[in-house]
Simulated assay, not measured.
Amino acid sequence: MSTDDELGRLLHDAVADVEPTDRLGELRARTATTRGTGLRWGAALAAAAVVAIVAGVVATTGPDVAREPVATGPSRTPSPTADAGRAVAAYFVGETPRGPRLYREFQRVASPTPGLSGLELLESGPVDPDYTTEWPAGSFRLDRISDPEDGTVHVWLSQGAPSPSELAMQQVVHTVSAGFGEPLTVVFHRGAEQSEPVAALPQLEVLALVNLSDPSEGQMVGDVLAVEGRASSFEANVPWRIEGTDLSGSFTAEGWTGARLFPFSGDVDVSSLDPGTYTLIVETDDPSGGAEGPGATSDSRTVVVP
């Protein structure tokens, strides 16, 4: 088994999500009593917080939070001799039929710091070329972030950081929540100014409806490709295929009627494939073939068969 195969297996086994608790009343109270000093983009931040509070119930408002991993994750530059580090989740932007949404990607960090390591990944960008980030290098004050207190974390922006869009703010909320292993609201600071607390929007409004966790981009695989992710798909059916081959099938998610994404996993026998680079595509089920609604959402990974 190659180093990358082992990393993928450990990530598959050890990294899971934590469902958020119901903090609706707490969020309402905090938003009513906490006031910022009026950043130029403070109105947008306040609106995002209010939308999340009004719309949310338990799983719909809470971020798709990852437990602190106890195993290694994918590497930006895979190498058999590289320090394995630890898996850190960051949320990046990708195109879907419903418009830009967030995709979670795990990257390997040698000595991660909760919260700050995720922000650093948002600046450095994704490994998967299908994703982008709205936070260029130098956006955050990476020398400081508060510890969670009463469900809130404070994040400091540099003076040169862009005025964040709603989706950019959600990148931070979900990434910081994953880093600390609990659903959090975020207060943004720029100099002496600060925003209203920003909570996570409902999952089905901000996350891509299918999201791969494993394999990692460019992973070396053996005869069996282990696949894991989360999806909100019709009747819990999650179709997959390997582009350019006759290999296809479907996974079954753990649910589909709730207003959130549900875990799915399975193994794909790739022993019949010749050595080369292949693309795994996983998508939501669309029985109408695009005739009703915006169509299927997909996520993909390139894998290498040695």
Rank of each mutant, 00 (worst) to 15 (best):
T21Q: 15
D5Q: 14
T37F: 07
P148Q: 05
Q107F: 06
G276V: 07
G191K: 02
V51G: 02
W256V: 01
V153E: 00
L27A: 15
D150K: 10
T297K: 06
F106M: 07
T34V: 14
S165N: 05
G255V: 12
L7Q: 08
S213G: 14
A231M: 13
S272F: 00
S233G: 15
F140C: 04
E292R: 15
E205F: 09
D130P: 01
H189K: 02
Y103M: 15
T61L: 12
V58C: 05
G179R: 01
L201D: 01
R23A: 11
T279M: 14
V210W: 00
S233C: 13
A226D: 11
E254R: 13
P74W: 12
E123T: 08
V270N: 03
P126K: 06
I242R: 04
S177W: 01
V50W: 04
T33M: 08
R67L: 13
V18N: 08
F180P: 03
R86C: 10
Q170F: 12
E120N: 12
H174S: 07
V198P: 08
A59R: 12
F92C: 08
L207F: 07
G94K: 02
T33H: 10
L273K: 13
P126L: 12
E149C: 11
T113I: 10
V172S: 04
N237L: 12
H154E: 10
D246M: 04
V282Y: 00
A200T: 01
Q170R: 06
D13V: 10
H12C: 05
S177R: 01
D4S: 14
G118T: 00
L7S: 05
V206K: 10
P263T: 13
V109A: 00
L201E: 04
L7M: 13
A253K: 00
V304W: 02
S248F: 06
V210H: 01
E120D: 14
H154G: 03
S79Q: 12
S111K: 15
A137D: 14
H154L: 06
A32H: 06
S300A: 15
T133I: 09
L261R: 08
V153W: 01
S165P: 11
P129Q: 11
A110I: 07
A59N: 14
P129L: 11
S165C: 04
A14S: 14
G293P: 04
